[in-house]
């Protein structure tokens, strides 16, 4: 009760100082918010691209139907494989005419179908990694009636490299800005502690427990962090609306990310004020 009252009173006693510290926290968390928004949309884009990762097993023209059925079954038995589709020479030609109309007449006039029959292998989500696609392609290439098995090796590697860079950047930059936010809260709390050094001195003098002395400051830090996180969410949402309306379509981050952001703001506030008060309790 005392802790909550004192924590709220701190906002009343020094509204400029606490408001400023919340604003500074909000700015730092806003950067984290923007980065989260960008990361989330990058993840969505990468996931959409990842959906298209599949292996195409090209079959020789003389492959017998029983051999094709056998391979179809073999590939379908892999736990990483979601679906195997057979595409006959005729199907391949129709698709080519559909997708490449400029070549349509050429195919019709020549009377020859140069396209091979194939098996298209779709993978389960979570298994569309370079290792898995490479292993399944190698398995298919073992069969003598298989001409080749391709999966766009280069761009799959690049896609996954891009994903790794995205995750690493999120971790490093998010961590760096979180650290900045923690330092700002810590500094604001140090100022608050200095402003209330007389009270802390009296509390120590008369035998208040250390945990009792700490509690209002921890709560104040948590509230400042939470207020900053709320403000940062609002600023990030404003930016999202602006980008969505005037630049290009992007997705808003999931509710769970917002909840984590708010909790992280409060936790960071409490943690950094805890560090600040631990040191300053020795000094006052």
């Amino acid at each position: 009760m005392y802790a909550l009252r004192e924590a709220l009173a701190a906002f009343r006693r020094a509204p400029v100082l606490t408001g400023l510290s919340s604003a500074m926290v909000a700015l730092a968390l806003f950067v984290v918010g923007l980065f989260s928004l960008a990361t989330y949309n990058l993840q969505l884009t990468l996931s959409a691209i990842e959906e298209r990762v599949e292996i195409v097993v090209y079959l020789r023209d003389d492959a017998r139907q029983s051999e094709i059925d056998h391979l179809l079954g073999e590939l379908g038995d892999f736990e990483e494989v979601r679906l195997v589709r057979y595409l006959s020479k005729r199907d391949a030609l129709e698709r080519a005419q559909e997708q490449l109309p400029e070549f349509g007449e050429l195919f019709l006039e020549s009377g020859v179908n140069p396209l091979p029959q194939s098996l298209e292998v779709e993978l389960q989500p979570g298994f569309r990694t370079p290792d898995v696609v490479d292993r399944i392609a190698q398995e298919a290439r073992v069969y003598p009636f298989v001409e080749d098995a391709l999966y766009g090796e280069e761009w799959v590697d690049r896609l996954f490299a891009l994903r790794r860079i995205g995750l690493a950047s999120t971790a490093v930059l998010g961590g760096a800005f979180a650290l900045v936010a923690a330092l700002i809260i810590g500094t604001a709390l140090r100022i608050a502690i200095f402003a209330r050094r007389d009270e802390i001195y009296v509390m120590r003098l008369v035998g208040a427990k250390k945990s009792f002395i700490r509690r209002p400051f921890l709560l104040e830090g948590a509230l400042a962090g939470l207020a900053g996180a709320f403000l940062a969410c609002a600023l990030t949402y404003g930016t999202y609306r602006g980008v969505y309306s005037y630049l290009f379509e992007i997705a808003w981050v999931p509710g769970s990310w917002i909840a984590i952001g708010l909790l992280a703001g409060a936790a960071f506030g409490a943690f950094s004020s805890g560090l600040a008060i631990r040191r300053h309790l020795q000094e006052v």
Binding site: M1, Y2, E199, V202, M203, V206, G207, A208, F212, I213
Partner: peptide, 11 residues
């Protein structure tokens, strides 16, 4: 009152 409050005296 401040001293009483910070040393666990009932409200």
């Amino acid at each position: 009152a401040f001293v009483l409050e910070v040393t666990d005296t009932p409200q």
